[in-house]
Amino acid sequence: MPFPLSSALRGAVLLAAPLFCAFPALAQTEYPLHLSNCGVDLTFDAAPVRTVTVGQAATEILYALDLGDRVLGTSVWFSAVLPQFETVNAGVPRLADNDPSFESVVALRPDLVAVQYEWHIGPQGSVGTRDQFADLGIPTYTLPSDCEGKDNSVGSDGTRLAPYSIESLYQGIDELARIFDVPERGAALLDDLRAREEAAIDAARALDLGDASAVFWFSSAEMDIDPYVAGQGGAPAYMMEALGLRNIIDSNEEWPVVGWETIARANPTVIVLARMDRRRFEADDVERKLDFLRTDPVASQMDAVRHNRIVVLDAHGMDPSIRNIDALETLSAALAGLDLQ
């Protein structure tokens, strides 16, 4: 049963929810708070008030917890901020669109740096290592979605040892809520996300998809070249698994390069395209991806293309983030509109 409210509207409702919550369900955080985060033991004596974020997913989780007033600076943006956070984001300085420099982060004297990816702050971090920040007395918190079941010392994007689980995202929300002493907001956000996840899954399961399969096409370095597609490791694999779609790609990597020949032979039922603002490769443009599918002599012969079973999703929703649930809802709703029989 599709839920009539748009996800943006529901987000607004969610933000308002804690304000009306007269009886906090959870106790206040007791400090000092001890936490093990991605192999680093953290201790907080008080809730942070000066946070710098490195990574859009971390930024948006803090906004979703209504902690925008405690964020001093943001960095590493992949797309425009979610519409419900536009106002709060407008009041927060952006240190850099991409990687911030170590010193620009430190100069803000943060008492917490919240990190989305270890490739920015981690053992070989492009911004710095967690030790470098710790030496200055600055704790760093890495979203568990980038380290749980993932080895970031192997492969340029890291290698997932176990498939991405949405629970690692929920864990990050829960831990950040405790660190910032807003456990009731965390619980409310999680309740909402879980409810939406369940609704989307139920809706898709009700479609009786049978052996329906899918491929997620992110982009390609050249228009006709072997594309980047979702493997078994990342968030798209979780979405396909959750909605009952078989991923035609076997690779355990998050975004392996797979030939069109293999994709066409597997002939997926549905093709999911990533939409993004980035314009570094021709195929970043979703229109170019559609052009390719319709004109390429082989790709155009796939059932999904011939029957126009193509779904467009926000690219950032395919990275571990709260947008996964938006993407899951969009995909689930789109499946209902496709002629899958």
């Binding site: 390609s220 370095a221 050249e222 006709d224 070249i225 390069v257 490769f281 390429d296 002599p297």
Partner: peptide
Amino acid sequence: GLMFWLLGNLSGVR
């Protein structure tokens, strides 16, 4: 992506 392309790639040939 760029390194992959620079090292030589015939997959996009039509």
